[in-house]
Every structure is written in C-alpha cells, then in structure tokens.
Design a protein around this nucleic acid. Sequence first.
DNA 1: AATGACCTTGACGTTTACGTAAAGGTAAAC
DNA 2: GTTTACCTTTACGTAAACGTCAAGGTCATT
Lengths: 142, 142
Amino acid sequence: MSQTWTISDLSREFGVTPRTIRFYEDENLLTPAREGQNRIYSARDRARLAWILRGRRVGFSLAEITEMLDLYDLDDGRETQRQVTLEKCRDRLAALENQRADLDATIDELAGFCRLLEELKAGVPLEEIRRKHHAKLRSVAE
Amino acid sequence: MSQTWTISDLSREFGVTPRTIRFYEDENLLTPAREGQNRIYSARDRARLAWILRGRRVGFSLAEITEMLDLYDLDDGRETQRQVTLEKCRDRLAALENQRADLDATIDELAGFCRLLEELKAGVPLEEIRRKHHAKLRSVAE
DNA sequence: AATGACCTTGACGTTTACGTAAAGGTAAAC
DNA sequence: GTTTACCTTTACGTAAACGTCAAGGTCATT
C-alpha cells in the first residue's frame, strides 16, 4: 500500500545520478529493500535522501551527514546513549549556528557590494557612496 | 608604515598551514609582495584570506570563492562590465539565500530533535511528545 | 529473436584541496 | 661556526565524492 520508488525515480526527482544514490548506499547512508536484484526505495529512504542532499547543499561532508543521521538512528533508548546523543546534537547545532553567522556575514557583504554597484550605475557620486559604505568592504576589494 | 605579516603569522592567526596559504597563491587567490624570496602579506591580503576562509567554512569551493572575489576585482569601471558584475552578484546572492533557507531548515529539524531528546530525558510520556513533534521528523528517523 | 529501456556489479579514472616529504637558502642565537 | 628557526620551491601522495566505462541480467515491444 505504501508508495515505493525505483532508483531512476529518485534520480529524476532529486536531480542526481543513480551512481550517486548507489554511492550513498555503499557508504551506508541508505539501505533500500530489494526486489530480486533491483533496489526499492521506501518513503523513509526517500526522506533520508532528501536530508542527505540538503546537507550536501549546505556544505557538509558525507561523514558529517552520516553522523547527523546517526543521531536519529543510534538512539537505542538507553539512558546513557541518549545523553551522548543529546550532547552531540547540541554540538552540531552550535556549529550550524556559527555557520549561519558566517553565511549571514557573506550575504551582507555581497548585498552591500551589490548596492554599491547599483548606486554607481545610477550615477551617484563616489564621494557620497564612500560615506555610506564602510571600509571593511574596501579592505578586501582594494 | 602599514602593517604587514609573514606567512606563519597568518598561519597562526587563522589556524591554517602555510601550505594552504601558498596553495591559495598558486590558485591566484592571493598575490602577496616579496621581500627577497619571502612573502609579505598586506592588510588587503589578510582581509582576502579571511574572506576565503569564511567562504570555505560556509561550504564554497575555491572556484566559487574565486568567482566571488573576482566580482570585487574585475569591475574595471566600464559600463557593460559593471552590468555583468551586478548580474553575477545578484545570482550569487540568490544562491546564498537559498543556502540560508536550507541551513535554517536543517537547524530547525535538529533543534526539534534536540527538544525531543530533552523531553524524553525529563520523562515526558511518548504520547504527548508525539502530539507536539510533527511527522516530518519521524519520516527520516523511522 | 532482437531492439530498447531499464536495472545490476565491479573497477578504474578524475577533480578538489590540500598533506607530506625532499632539498635547500637565510639569518639570528649560542 | 653550527645549531635553530624560519622561509623557499618542486613534486609526489591522498581522501572525498563521485564519473565513466565495461560486461551483463531482465523484461516489454516490435
């Protein structure tokens, strides 16, 4: 009753090659069922693939993604195990928030440079622009 | 009069090896001055290195970082050139904001899982937790 | 029965981003 | 004057994340 997908279904849907999907299986990130020789992907497999690819877009290595997915899986209910998971989870979260700060800073600078270009195009005199844009940007640009 | 740095100064300050810094020079990301054989880094070089490393933390390839730095440099003042730069700048900015959305989603999910673990530890009954945490998370976890 | 469209498992190739010697130049410290 | 502590270039090595054949199995058309 529950929906399943073939490897090329997922390949098309997520815009990655079958090779990539098989590679993730080799790395134990996915464990699809089999129908004879062929791989059959469940909703859970599909969700995990989505998670992996988003992690990839954010810049994580597969090792890091593995670790994060393991956080969900590895929690076997034992009290001590759960404590470890929680700590790792918090560490990861802190790292992610640092990364967001870096990303925000990058966005701010690029947006600022974008505005500068727009003002130049609009014929705003350089002197006036200089007053509005801080030296930080210029230290990189020149 | 203006301050300069040696390669190991920057190496220590930013926590990367000299090899890495030389590699960035090979890739034309840095062009330090020379004092005899030795490299001398200006404030601009240092700022560029900081930019590169932040880009790296955010998950960019050196090729992407190169392109973004080129946006600052390549704008030679010609009108058409500036238009191209502006467009590329906007494209980059859009990509960055997509990445930010991905990052936010990742943070949200991990934070949610973190809260779940905390509630489990606090002895909140599973039934109640299930009502508060949506199915999206569980589709990945199980 | 053969063409085409899928799927499979190897296995070697490739790019990126450096690591890691190897071999040597310079300059202050002992 | 030689150890120590830097710096340099050249060059081969490597881990990650797949790409790219190669060789073959299955199943529906034609």
